[in-house]
Design a binder for these strands. Structure first.
Lengths: 186, 186
DNA sequence: TATATTGTTAAATAAATTTTTAATAAAGTT
DNA sequence: AACTTTATTAAAAATTTATTTAACAATATA
């Protein structure tokens, strides 16, 4: 019955390919290139891979694999592993989506908070100077106040984002929104 | 003292420009084009704008403004308003970052959950067939089980993401991570 | 230390996206 | 209903981004 055997093997490959396609498709949300998205999705069903295995599997150039892997390492979706004996570097995909989520979004949001908070602090300084400056007309003072308050209001959001980041990084968020594990097949 | 007046006006403009620059810079995180990012940041300090005002202010073409505005509407960062008397359409920027956050990320995560869950369900069906199929070799069954369990495990994440979405959309998340409002200047 | 192998950087090519100009459609006014 | 104004769509141009080929650097092995 080697025909049926083959059929089963094909079914397994089809099953993997469906998931690989879906992961790759949604990974544009993580701001990675199509090559990196395909690579991660492929690695999701592998123990570990070398650069040469990657380029064979995806039929792409080695530098493309190299840059893709580095990008994926930046967002902690891939880690380098040490494999004794082999002098090729080996890499493994992070298979825990919670960890990828944490690293990616916290990194992203931290950048957003930092850049915008810096700008806001500087802008509020400027606006306070206009407000205090005796030669400013009343209309200008009013305008400066309006913007100052608008910025102050927006800081509520950035502070909240900071708290969200901390709750995610410490795992405290799972007290509020728990993980619901199901049991396995075996 | 019209010189000092001018200086104050310039200071106000500088203050705005700092924030506009920062918002535009971090808006690549929201997957919008530079034109749309600049547009939103500019509108953040305006009551409302028409397409013609946008193209004058940003020195870009009208179709570019038109498509940018539509993209911003999709992620609820801009809303159309009715202005009696004017036959030009007018648009306002959503200035509440919490609302933008909610719409953007929930939309994004919903898409991720839907696409991946569909693929996982189909893949698990295939894998179950392999497992049940009497002609599958023990090695194949073992492989199919391994992948099945890996996918089952990942569903914990997608279910959690669904719960996160719901907590954000209903505002329940603020019970867990509260907003900390500061008082205004006036 | 020389050599072979692997990984990375740089320049060039290819592909995709963004923006503009030009044409069309839609809406409002007289 | 014709005309004017505004917004959108389609095609073309320009820009940016992704990928590859080729050269270089680094590493490990003999």
């Amino acid at each position: 019955m080697s025909e049926n055997n083959e059929k089963s093997q094909i079914k397994i490959e089809e099953a993997k390919d469906k998931v690989i396609g879906a992961i790759a498709e949604t990974m544009d949300l993580y701001g990675v290139t199509p090559a990196a998205a395909n690579l991660y999705a492929t690695m999701y069903f592998k123990d570990q891979m070398t650069l040469d295995e990657m380029r064979t599997e995806l039929e792409m150039s080695k530098p493309s694999m190299s840059t893709s892997v580095r990008k994926l390492q930046e967002i902690a979706m891939v880690k380098k592993t040490y494999t004794r004996g082999s002098r090729k570097h080996t890499y493994v995909a992070e298979k825990n989506f919670f960890r990828s989520f944490m690293v990616f979004y916290c990194q992203m949001w931290e950048r957003e908070v930092k850049i915008n908070m810096n700008a806001i602090e500087e802008a509020q300084d400027d606006l306070l100077n206009v407000i205090k400056e005796s030669s400013s007309t009343p209309a200008m003072v009013a305008e400066a106040k309006k913007y100052y308050d608008q910025l102050e209001e927006s800081k509520t959001y950035y502070h909240w984002l900071e708290d969200l980041i901390e709750n995610i990084e410490t795992g405290k968020i799972f007290e509020c929104i728990p993980k619901k594990q199901k049991e396995s097949l075996t």
